[in-house]
């Protein structure tokens, strides 16, 4: 019995907790992708850089607060710098829309053109970010490292295996739940949110109903700014902030949005968890888990790993490609481009 609990704790520590955290981060990113896709009708390749930009402004604000001696004890300062990052990204997305995307909307450019335009923006933002903060790793975490660490857990429970929950993981879960809850509430229950869904569903009819498209688009960018800043900052806080990683995050995020069904907000969140958990479960070495569960004589020799950890990220691309081929509408039934 104790063995089974030990095995479960092991799985919780190495798969469930990190999977939930990473899934939330991907889901927040994918929700942004899906909203832009439904309302503005293009795949935003600048999304990763927007996340990076949000994280960067939050970092700069955190540093400033730290330099002023502002501290919140156990809670990371970054949490309080977040609103400033969000404001900066709102300014960024609205400026980008005004200077870049609006024109292509007015000439009714096809989605591919918009996609290529967003690639130009991706280059620009990538450069701007590196210009401001440099290409290197930045650490901006402060406060208490763990909500509960492995040693404390072992002492508390008397088990062999420890369960550690980092502060950043707890923060990610709480903020993601609040944010996603807010977005869903907004889309379901406010007039503006409903008008966004209406516009996404049937643009012409929305116009005939007197819905102002520019306002819908403005609100979409603002919500996207919240989502990207949160996703970018939480990822940077939890792993580490490096401008380069955000370009590589773009694909897992697209994968999440598409796996869930692009255009479907719930799908984006589900997709994030599918990607996160499949990465972790397939590359996890089950040797120790099986060691607890199987009789001694059957104890496995190898690592019992389905795929080497090196292939972790490649796996999300593989899932993406498989979904694209087998079921392009995704698990929650989104649109097909």
């Amino acid at each position: 019995m104790v063995d089974i609990i030990n095995a479960l704790v092991l799985i919780a520590n190495f798969i469930v907790v990190p999977g939930l955290t990473y899934g939330c981060q991907l889901g927040l990113g994918a929700l942004g992708i899906t909203m832009i896709y439904s309302v503005l009708r293009f795949s935003n390749f600048a999304h990763g850089e927007m996340m990076s930009f949000g994280a960067m402004t939050t970092i700069l604000m955190t540093w400033w607060m730290q330099a002023q001696g502002i501290s919140f004890g156990a809670v990371p300062t970054a949490l309080f710098a977040l609103p400033f990052g969000i404001v900066a990204v709102i300014a960024l997305t609205l400026t980008a829309d005004r200077l870049v995307f609006r024109y292509y909307r007015s000439i009714k450019a096809p989605p591919v053109t918009m996609l290529i335009v967003s690639m130009g923006l991706m280059f620009f933002l990538g450069g701007l970010i590196r210009f401001i903060i440099g290409p290197d790793d930045q650490n901006f975490f402060d406060g208490q490292r763990f909500i509960i660490n492995a040693r404390q857990f072992k002492e508390m429970t008397g088990l062999n295996e420890g369960l550690a929950i980092k502060t950043t993981q707890g923060m990610t879960l709480i903020l993601a739940v609040l944010m996603v809850g807010f977005v869903f509430w907004f889309l379901r229950h406010t007039r503006t949110g409903k008008s966004m869904r209406a516009y996404a569903n049937n643009e012409d009819l929305a116009l005939l109903s007197g819905i102002n498209p520019e306002r819908v688009i403005l609100v979409t960018w603002v919500i996207t700014a919240f989502l990207v800043t949160l996703a970018g900052t939480l990822y940077g806080l939890d792993k580490s902030y490096k401008p380069f990683t955000y370009l590589s995050l773009l694909l897992p995020i697209f994968a999440s949005a598409i796996v869930g069904g692009i255009g479907s907000p719930i799908g984006a969140i589900l997709g994030g968890f599918v990607i996160a958990f499949s990465e972790l479960t397939i590359t996890f070495a089950y040797k120790r888990v099986l060691g607890y569960l199987l009789p001694q004589s059957l104890e496995p020799q190898g690592l019992m790993q389905l795929l080497s950890t090196d292939y972790k990220i490649a796996l999300s691309f593989l899932i993406l490609v498989l979904v694209l081929i087998l079921k392009p509408t995704g698990i929650a039934g989104g649109k097909v481009i």
């Binding site: 409903k194 209406a198 996404a200 569903n201």
Partner: peptide, 25 residues
């Protein structure tokens, strides 16, 4: 008020939300 021949409802919205969108102004 205009009712187009095709695509004249918001398929992904509830009936009430459709009406609410009509009353947007």
């Amino acid at each position: 008020g205009f009712v187009p021949q095709t695509a004249n409802i918001f398929t992904e919205l509830s009936v009430e939300e459709n009406l609410e969108m009509g009353a947007f102004l």
